[in-house]
């Protein structure tokens, strides 16, 4: 017996396996970042008066990074849509743009980190920077993880397009869902850490 519903949806749920899987995983991710956001609020509320930095980061770089991530979200959607419309070349093109965006995001992020380090600011400096480095660091790990999966789908994993196009399209969709979630987390991180 083969494992059913790998590429076709199960009739009563209307979903294929990987889609159930990724949403469950994202649910646990909501709790992971949710706990960190709760910690952020507690540390901020509990900080001694005047000890919490307001807008200490480079807002320009943050805004650009927000734009980069949102743009990569739309390009990964385009790559999936291209597969849906049977254009493998289109998929490759837009997936490549997505990958370049993730690299750009990480480069900008490391410039930000580097400038903090060069000013002698580390996670141990105070609780603001502790939670800043933890939240953005964990988010960056998610960006790296997502980018690695995307790289696999763009490179060696794309062979599956020839053997099982439907399943491959699903994989791109699932990877996209994760990528949008990473984007969504950043949409909260940006105002919370940079602006408010």
């Amino acid at each position: 017996m083969e494992i059913p519903y790998n590429s076709t949806p199960r009739p009563d749920t209307g979903l294929y396996n990987a889609k159930v899987g990724i949403w469950l995983f994202l649910a646990s991710e909501v709790m992971l970042f949710g706990a960190l956001f709760s910690s952020y609020i507690l540390l901020r509320v509990g900080a001694d008066p005047g000890m919490w930095h307001l807008r200490p980061l480079n807002i320009w770089l943050g805004t650009i990074n927000t734009g980069v991530l949102i743009f990569s979200s739309i390009t990964i959607l385009m790559s999936w849509a291209n597969l849906k419309m049977n254009s493998f070349e289109g998929f490759r093109k837009f997936m490549l743009i997505t990958l370049l965006c993730s690299v750009a995001f990480l480069v900008i992020k490391s410039i930000e980190y580097g400038s903090k380090f060069s000013h002698g600011i580390y996670p141990k400096t105070d609780t603001y920077y502790a939670i800043y480095f933890t939240l953005t660091g964990l988010h960056a790990l998610h960006v790296i993880g997502g980018a690695l999966v995307n790289l696999y789908l763009w490179g060696p994993g794309s062979k599956m397009w020839k053997t099982d196009p439907e399943r491959f399209t699903n994989r791109v969709e699932v990877s996209g869902l994760f990528w949008h979630f990473v984007d969504l987390v950043w949409i909260f991180l940006f105002p919370v850490l940079y602006l408010l």
Partner: peptide, 24 residues
């Protein structure tokens, strides 16, 4: 989206809110 995913996310949202607000 399908009902199943709404259900899962609904519970997740509820527990997340519970975690955040009860702790606060």
């Amino acid at each position: 989206e399908k009902k199943l995913i709404y259900t899962v996310l609904g519970f997740t949202g509820f527990f997340f809110v519970g975690l955040m607000f009860l702790t606060l």
